[in-house]
Design a protein around this nucleic acid. Structure first.
Lengths: 191, 191
DNA sequence: CGCGACGTTGATTTGCCTCAACGATTGTGG
DNA sequence: CCACAATCGTTGAGGCAAATCAACGTCGCG
């Protein structure tokens, strides 16, 4: 069974006909690790649904430091929402962490999808609601937890990521430097 | 013209009939400053649309320290999205900053609204998309800017809030202690 | 093999916190 | 209308978590 269809059906039921429409509006693609799918100055036109591999989004600040905004694993969506909805140049990079197979959904086709299969608008509403909750929780964690607590929480929440994501990206996601992250890890091992 | 209807019409057009349905599903209410509209352990059942006054949402961490998640002014929505969609006990407080008049929209009525006026589901989708963008931007700011930069950015973005919100709440929103905030302000004045 | 990216470790610095004391303002009951 | 407490913002001294800078080992890969 198709991963995307399965994912959508967790929230709204689709007829066979509707499933076909969904699949007709996405385009499969393959990307090698380190491919840049989007960079600032470009305008995001695509939402990526990951079938296999991993992608991350990140910004680069005025000092040239990268800040990982999110990791996306199979069965997740990723895009630069800001650029996608405002049609202004992106503020983020989208970059492949490990060789990836994705469905590409263009904004145009996404809007077509809302018209042809209105249920999918509900699906995306629910998806985005969850995204807000996740973002809020991460914000709260950044404001109220120490780096160490954020790290152990990350390990609990995404145990698989620890093994397959370069450490410096995890450090960046947590919100610390790679050096401090390394020391922190060593400190935790002693316990 | 009604503020809520006006707000919705910025994104989707409503017939007079549909406008009536919207207004029939919300309930007006008044609250005095410092009223707690929601607290952890309760389950959020209501989305508030502010007609007048101000409301804030915040969490309290394990050390008893408050962290302001968001301020809501007239023409904005506020709720604990986590509790609302998961139907689990809230993680946030919702509290009135200055005497407020609001429309209350219960979850039940919100779902009814989606059925009776499907367009409104699009309206909320768009609204929530913007919310994701705002949350991401704030996260990036917390990761990449100093407290001073976050403060000046806040002043640029919400000049009116500076005057009408107690300083300690702004400090909390920025992510610093009231003491540090005070010193920071004094330092900026010297420039 | 040799280069470059990655992770580790140490010395030092710094942004922000903690604690404590002190005016100013608010509000509340007598 | 005043006295008093409570809350708020300010200021200072000292402390700590995390950043910075620098040096070094390791590994994968052209």
């Amino acid at each position: 069974m198709d991963l995307l269809i399965e994912n959508i059906q967790k929230h709204v039921a689709l007829t066979t006909e509707e499933q076909k429409i969904v699949l007709s509006l996405v385009e499969e693609a393959n990307y090698k690790s380190k491919t840049i799918l989007l960079k600032p100055s470009e305008i995001a036109d695509t939402t990526f649904f990951i079938l296999d591999g991993m992608i991350r989004s990140y910004t680069v600040d005025t000092n040239g430091v990268e800040h990982v905004i999110s990791f996306a694993a199979p069965n997740w969506f990723i895009t630069d929402m800001y650029s996608l909805i405002s049609k202004k140049p992106a503020q983020q990079y989208l970059s492949v962490i490990s060789d990836a197979t994705v469905y590409k959904l263009s904004r145009e086709n996404q809007e077509k999808l809302y018209e042809l299969v209105p249920k999918t608008e509900r699906f995306f509403r629910i998806l985005i609601e969850k995204s807000v909750v996740a973002h809020q929780q991460r914000l709260i964690d950044n404001l109220s937890l120490t780096a160490e607590d954020r790290y152990t929480k990350f390990c609990d929440k995404y145990p698989k990521f620890i093994q397959c994501i370069p450490q410096k990206y995890i450090a960046s996601y947590i919100g610390v430097t790679p050096e401090f992250f390394s020391k922190m890890k060593a400190r935790l091992l002693k316990k």
